[in-house]
Design a protein around this nucleic acid. Structure first.
Lengths: 248, 248
DNA sequence: ACGAAACGAGAGCAGTGCTCTCGCAATGAG
DNA sequence: CTCATTGCGAGAGCACTGCTCTCGTTTCGT
């Protein structure tokens, strides 16, 4: 079908992943072909997930799309779940990339503006890629292994948010905020060393709220209740900024 | 088609609601057998979902479990999705029931205690029934129909929370809170008439946070970061109460 | 008592993930 | 350059899935 398009998209994505320094090590022609085909499989699978969701991803459909035997896929991914895991990592990276971009494009702006910009960007990406969002923040798929490989990609978005939080900490620390219990305090201290635990706890709560809002909207729980969702979401960000004392 | 689905679902729901006291209206023996078998199918399906998740629900496994032919299942549920939809409605009801119970058991207590009690009860239920929680608040399954029949069951939990919010409104209204934009304000007014829109908006935000916290915990996003999750969750409720001005 | 409706069982279709074996082609060591 | 090793694609096949259709049997309303 759109073989060439898929190849292009895939290689472009691959470029993003290893930062473009792959051309320096062409290795053998076979290795290059392998990387290319691996990327094609992922690209086709990504399209399929975007179209019908994770549960509808079929290895045989991917193999048909690429014009190869279904058994050949197993030369590249040991199982369907492995392919799905690769897509999950990609989605984590995509969401992290979106957040980083939004944050960078607002460099120099006050923390509140950066927080709002990142939140809006993440929501926009989620609305544009609902199935990939669900892949990451929805219910874990079949056997839900949650491999540790995803960790480094998963922390990108939280790093951005916690970075903004840390920068805003002096302002936040001025407002009255309940102190967490000791057990929680030490864990907060471990997450962002040097930051007052009560501030980190607030930040994680707002992070949960952010994804709660996006998930509820995306999974249809606002269906008949809230229609102007842009305005509603923006007001929620205003509320969040208010609770951090960033609006004064 | 969806007409038939709704009929099936409705009768199934009826069955659950009047429990075993249907003997007053035995109707025909066949109707009783039908209700019984329908309930057995759902029970077996529920066990299977609890064991292996929604994506692992197999009609044939259910039929084997009940010792009947797989095709016979279709006399009771027109499709796998219809069976899943029935389970979703049950899960909504279960979660609503848990919330109502927690709220009732704290009748007379101040709103903060009730809010905390309900939140803890919902989280506890989610931790005890992860797959059923995912059925409801995770990513919608394949084609995500979200039939309107779920609405009445879905609002039970929100009714409880909004009820507590309304009762606490006089206290909440005393704190300084940003005013939502006009479009949002009219929608808030429609959700809880008479309540200040800024209070309703705050409440919905906290509702989103509640489910965001539960979802993140349940779907493994706190895995390596937060270990004492009870204490953390409780502190988040303290933060929520603080943001509503209920702690002074 | 009889026609109609509901029901259960079985066969069958198209599809799935995954395994195994077979031959061909590229690879790297001698 | 030769040649054994390895990587790889194709095909057949297994066990499983949701779902449909047909065909007798049982039960119901009248």
């Amino acid at each position: 079908m759109s073989r060439a398009v898929l190849t292009f998209v895939a290689s472009a994505l691959e470029m993003v992943h290893n930062g473009g320094m792959s051309s320096s090590t062409p290795a053998t022609a076979r290795a290059r072909a392998r990387a290319e085909i691996t990327a094609e499989i992922k690209a086709s699978a990504r399209l399929q997930v975007a179209a019908v969701g994770a549960s509808g991803l079929s290895l045989r459909a991917v193999s048909r799309d690429l014009g190869m035997a279904s058994s050949a896929i197993y030369r590249y991914f040991p199982s369907r779940d492995a392919l799905l895991t690769a897509l999950i990592i990609d989605a984590f990276d995509a969401i992290g990339h979106v957040a980083e971009e939004a944050n960078l494009s607002l460099a120099g702006s006050p923390p509140e503006k950066r927080w709002r910009g990142v939140a809006h960007a993440v929501r926009r990406w989620a609305l544009d890629n609902p199935h990939e969002y669900a892949l990451v923040y929805g219910s874990p798929v079949p056997g839900y292994v949650a491999p540790s490989e995803t960790a480094t990609s998963a922390t990108r978005i939280t790093d951005v948010l916690l970075g903004i939080l840390a920068e805003a900490a002096p302002t936040i620390a001025r407002i009255e905020l309940p102190e967490p219990p000791d057990e929680t305090a030490v864990e907060m201290e471990a997450i962002v060393p040097g930051l007052p635990p009560r501030v980190t706890a607030l930040g994680i709560g707002l992070w949960a709220q952010l994804f709660g809002l996006i998930s509820l909207e995306l999974f249809g729980h606002f269906e008949t209740v809230i229609t102007d969702r842009d305005a509603f979401f923006d007001h929620q960000l205003t509320l969040a900024a208010h609770s951090m004392g960033l609006d004064t």
